Amino acid sequence: MAHSLHLGLFAALALSATTAFAAPATVTVENKTRPTACAEEDNVSMVLRGQGITGFRVEALQPSYIDRIEKDVTAPDFSACNFDGGAHPTDPSYKFKQRRVVLYDGPQWMIVGMTLPSFWRPNRVPVRVGARSGNDFHLVQVFAKSKEKDGKPMEALVLYPADGYWRLKPLPLPRFGDGVYGSSFLMGPVQDAGRPVVDISSITIQTQPLSFRLRFANGGSASVKVAEISQARTALDVSLHPPTQKSRPFAVLRSMFVSMDNADVSELTWQSTPSAAQETKPLPEISSIEAAQVRFARTTPSRHNTSAPDIRFSDFETARRN
């Protein structure tokens, strides 16, 4: 009996000696922006890379000038574009049967799957919420039932299963109606398919607590917990498996920049380490930075998507063993 106890104690000590724990990390952010005069074109690509990243947080935050907005300009502006609101002229077009399916409707959330009549990729990704599912949705929308809006469902999150794009926004302040999206982003093994994409093989959504389980075509996976939806922020806590390799981006922010007053992101604010002083530079002046947290922001009110949120990546972690 004593011998067995000693063996059990030894095994427990050995297990504890190799327990993984999260350690703060920094990532490299590369600016791959190209010039454009079109306010409806995603010409901004901010590429995030890091070695061994296993988790991080991404948030949509109200712009710092939100209280100074006199007129919220949310209408699209195709005045300097070579397309007029339809598909981009360089995109392929695959046809689908249009539909809208309420996948879940509960006291806090409503989750909707939408299939568009056409989309630029043919990919069909199985999406499941409880007993309801579909494999042809181009948008999965999450609506929060806002107390501030008398229980009206307010859209706060959209995931595009066929190309891996996400969009977030906080719940809008009362005077801003339904609010507006700005920048989008990708999370997972990013690759180039004419534009950055993440190939997802399946999506499972849990409603209590609200979270997404993504399996990627390369065999990896991500767990995305919706940590908060409020007027201050919509926040996601992301876990990646396996840990990232620095040779491949694990996230890309996609946005628009024409000028400092016509942009969905016009400057970056970041800390190079968790204890470093905060730095801010205009987007065109940045080629690459090392960051423990980075906010893709605007301090000059934009004449495009004026109230659209800032997007911040933070709390990068690696798994280490003691």
Score class of each variant (00 low, 15 high):
residue 8 G to H: 13
residue 8 G to C: 11
residue 13 L to R: 15
residue 15 L to K: 09
residue 17 A to I: 06
residue 18 T to Y: 14
residue 19 T to H: 10
residue 21 F to Y: 15
residue 24 P to T: 10
residue 25 A to M: 10
residue 29 V to E: 00
residue 32 K to M: 12
residue 33 T to Y: 07
residue 36 T to C: 10
residue 38 C to W: 05
residue 46 M to L: 15
residue 47 V to D: 01
residue 48 L to E: 00
residue 50 G to W: 02
residue 56 F to M: 14
residue 57 R to M: 09
residue 59 E to I: 00
residue 60 A to G: 07
residue 63 P to I: 05
residue 63 P to N: 06
residue 64 S to Y: 01
residue 65 Y to D: 05
residue 67 D to I: 06
residue 67 D to S: 15
residue 70 E to F: 09
residue 70 E to T: 13
residue 71 K to N: 11
residue 72 D to H: 04
residue 74 T to R: 12
residue 83 F to D: 01
residue 87 A to T: 09
residue 95 K to A: 15
residue 97 K to A: 11
residue 99 R to W: 08
residue 100 R to D: 10
residue 100 R to W: 04
residue 104 Y to A: 10
residue 107 P to T: 11
residue 107 P to M: 11
residue 107 P to N: 13
residue 112 V to M: 07
residue 114 M to F: 04
residue 114 M to W: 01
residue 116 L to N: 04
residue 121 R to D: 06
residue 124 R to P: 01
residue 124 R to K: 13
residue 124 R to G: 07
residue 125 V to A: 03
residue 126 P to M: 12
residue 128 R to K: 14
residue 131 A to I: 14
residue 134 G to S: 11
residue 136 D to P: 05
residue 138 H to P: 02
residue 142 V to Q: 01
residue 143 F to L: 12
residue 150 D to L: 12
residue 154 M to T: 10
residue 156 A to Y: 06
residue 158 V to W: 03
residue 158 V to G: 02
residue 159 L to H: 05
residue 160 Y to D: 07
residue 160 Y to H: 15
residue 163 D to F: 10
residue 166 W to G: 00
residue 170 P to G: 09
residue 172 P to E: 07
residue 173 L to R: 11
residue 176 F to Y: 15
residue 180 V to H: 03
residue 181 Y to G: 04
residue 187 M to D: 00
residue 187 M to Y: 04
residue 189 P to I: 02
residue 189 P to V: 04
residue 192 D to K: 08
residue 193 A to Q: 12
residue 194 G to L: 08
residue 198 V to M: 06
residue 207 T to L: 10
residue 208 Q to S: 14
residue 208 Q to L: 13
residue 212 F to N: 00
residue 219 G to Q: 06
residue 222 A to Q: 01
residue 225 K to N: 09
residue 227 A to Y: 03
residue 229 I to P: 00
residue 229 I to D: 00
residue 235 A to T: 10
residue 237 D to N: 08
residue 241 H to V: 07
residue 241 H to I: 05
residue 242 P to Q: 07
residue 244 T to I: 05
residue 245 Q to T: 12
residue 251 A to C: 07
residue 252 V to N: 00
residue 253 L to N: 00
residue 256 M to V: 15
residue 260 M to T: 13
residue 261 D to A: 12
residue 261 D to M: 06
residue 261 D to V: 08
residue 262 N to Q: 15
residue 266 S to N: 06
residue 271 Q to H: 12
residue 274 P to K: 07
residue 276 A to S: 15
residue 276 A to P: 06
residue 280 T to K: 12
residue 283 L to H: 05
residue 284 P to G: 09
residue 285 E to N: 14
residue 285 E to D: 15
residue 285 E to C: 06
residue 288 S to F: 02
residue 292 A to G: 08
residue 293 Q to F: 01
residue 293 Q to N: 13
residue 296 F to T: 02
residue 298 R to P: 01
residue 301 P to S: 11
residue 313 F to Q: 02
residue 318 T to V: 15
residue 322 N to E: 13
